[in-house]
């Protein structure tokens, strides 16, 4: 089950409603971009979806959620902790198995940072850290991707490379993006969020950048 169909989504903060109530349905094969100005509720909506699909999704949160003391390998490997028993995971913590190493190295190569495999994430740059979180989401390989500003710290070519990779690897995905051109280039559907409500929901090919700019 790659897509989801959620209704009655609401969220409040400090007694004040920040999201919804709203409904959102995403089908398999769709790439949805959530757009809107900062504070509109995109990140909150992401978290809500994540909870409602019982965490059965690959999530790239804005704050990345890396374990800074662990090297890149383990941060990526954490995407599949549920695939192995405790003993396997514990041994891996001390001495990873070579097939896992190969898989993770392969992923990192696609993201242009294979040589960073054993570097603690604390000592990486912002862009590199972002790619580690993306690698973890890819390694998790859930059918659904929820990515909150996944390319905010990446430069031009790398941003395109990553978006292409994510588009190819997940059958359904939801991105929160502030870069409208990127949203139009890589997503099949644009959902505009304004004051916690859906203000726009159109297929990407029917929109141009200026249509979206009205939300900002």
């Amino acid at each position: 089950m790659a897509g989801f169909d959620l209704s009655g989504l609401t969220a409040s903060f400090g007694g004040e409603r920040v999201i919804g109530p709203l409904s959102l349905k995403v089908k398999a094969g769709e790439q949805v971009a959530l757009v809107g100005k900062s504070g509109a509720g995109k990140s909150t909506l992401m978290r809500l979806i994540h909870q409602h699909v019982n965490r059965n999704s690959s999530l790239v949160p804005q704050e990345l959620g890396l374990v800074n003391a662990l090297p890149v390998f383990h941060n990526v490997f954490m995407g599949q902790l549920d695939q192995h028993g405790n003993w396997y995971n514990t041994v891996t913590l001390m001495r990873p198995f070579s097939r896992d190493k190969d898989k993770v190295r392969e992923l990192l190569k696609a993201l242009g940072m294979a040589e960073k495999l054993w570097i603690p994430t604390a000592s990486l740059s912002g862009g590199q850290r972002q790619r580690v979180a993306i690698a973890r989401a890819l390694y998790r390989s859930a059918p659904l991707l929820l990515a909150d500003e996944p390319i905010s710290a990446l430069d031009g070519p790398m941003a395109h490379q990553v978006m292409q990779l994510l588009k190819d690897r997940f059958s359904a995905s939801v991105f929160a993006l502030h870069d409208v051109d990127m949203a139009l280039a890589y997503c099949s559907r644009i959902v505009g969020i304004q004051d916690g409500q859906i203000a726009l929901d159109e297929p990407a090919e029917r929109l141009v950048a200026s249509d979206i700019m009205s939300l900002y």
């Binding site: 965490r55 374990v67 383990h74 954490m78 902790l81 973890r136 998790r140």
Partner: peptide
């Protein structure tokens, strides 16, 4: 607490603890 929230749902308690709490 963030890394713990991102783990796949069926991750064992011990694995989760070893990966997300201890290193930090």
């Amino acid at each position: 607490p963030e890394p713990g929230r991102l783990l796949p749902p069926r991750t064992g308690v011990i694995s989760a603890f070893l990966y997300t709490k201890i290193p930090d």
